[in-house]
Design a protein around this nucleic acid. Structure first.
Lengths: 206, 206
DNA sequence: ACGGGTGTATACAGGTCTGTATAGTATACG
DNA sequence: CGTATACTATACAGACCTGTATACACCCGT
């Protein structure tokens, strides 16, 4: 509010704000929002609770910040970057999603998808945090729709919906213990592409 | 424990046990296990808390009973019955799953899948309640595998895994607001069947 | 008639949670 | 120096949670 805010230097030795955000991200993404208390975030970040509450007036605000960060780190910097790095052609990028997922699912610290966890842990359809999670899911779908359009898929909207359905299904399947969920999902993606008349040169069959 | 148990008369005016089970089922399936307190179940069922704790020594036991009931009412008496009622041929029964889901998703009181909710709300991989939920998911998969085998699918195991992946994806998609999730999922199911060389006479294309 | 099992009502112990109150420290800037 | 600002430390209010303790009522078989 004063003067020196939002300008340049990000405060070299990890600003208090950053420590809060990092810690909240780690704990929320691993255990969900409900399961993590503000005291825990305070303790683990080394930031006093009062300070924490000055930066985020309520736990809900902390949740919003977490979801924003998740979109930035997971959706944009990780999923999209990796997909675009692994393939050039849009159709192949759509399939590359599952190659990225495969590495993800096999990580020993695989903790599931935070957006799905947050979505499912709020049963109230109108809860702002749930709606925020839905919005982030929609952002991912927009990415898929873009790829589908570029690949020449006729009904990119429906395609993206089905693609995301397979993605979410694979995440849940992996969470339930199927280590090969991504490979199976890739086959489904191939079938979708084939039906749309898009060839990738590297189909889903063995 | 005494003598008159587990024999015949189900105690006409709804036994205490039944009132507990029914109430726990309603509340747990709608809001999840974590979100519902024992006091709430006691109040809503009209059964004193002490009585409740005599029937179920801990909330965890109540959770197990709930999951058992969910399998009985949802999986067996509803999903399987409906599927078998709607089609005769195994291949068509596999697709009928999504017709049943369609009606489910469009119910105004659609509350998502309890097995998935319980699965996702326990991050500890070894938690007994989570493992119970995983077991119930496996039961559903066994049903799918049976249908696939009867339909002549070569690798019924992999097929059932993919089928269930689509089912779970559609449930999450519906939960996230896609009213047409079941219709989209049905198309994916059709593609899977077609690839397996199984024709249904009523394909997934328009 | 009496004792045991079953259910009720209420209170409470001990824990967790969010959010606040209060007092003190440190640093930067006039 | 003096003062504002950021941060710390601790305590606490008030709510909710699981599980138990206690005292009471009812019914049923012997």
């Amino acid at each position: 509010m004063s003067a020196h805010r939002s300008g340049k230097l990000p405060s070299r030795p990890a600003s208090v704000r950053e420590r809060i955000d990092q810690t909240a991200y780690e704990l929320f993404s691993r255990h969900g929002i409900r399961a993590v208390g503000v005291d825990t975030i305070s303790a683990r970040s080394g930031v006093a609770k009062m300070t924490l509450y000055r930066h985020y007036p309520s736990k809900e605000d902390l949740a919003f910040a977490f979801l924003r960060r998740r979109e930035e780190l997971w959706t944009r910097s990780w999923l999209q970057q990796e997909v675009e790095r692994r393939a050039q052609a849009p159709a192949e990028r759509l399939l590359a999603v599952f190659d990225v997922f495969d590495k993800w699912f096999r990580r020993s610290d695989f903790e599931g998808c935070s957006f799905l966890k947050v979505l499912l842990e709020h049963d109230d359809r109108g809860h702002p945090v749930r709606k925020a999670a839905e919005a982030h899911i929609k952002t991912i779908r927009a990415f898929l729709r873009r790829l589908a359009k570029d690949a020449g898929v006729r009904d990119a909207h429906a395609f993206a919906r089905q693609m995301q359905m397979v993605m979410m299904g694979s995440i849940v399947a992996a969470y339930a213990g199927d280590r090969d969920a991504a490979r199976r999902a890739r086959e489904l993606g191939s079938l979708l592409l084939a039906r749309a008349g898009i060839g990738t040169g590297k189909g889903g069959r063995s």
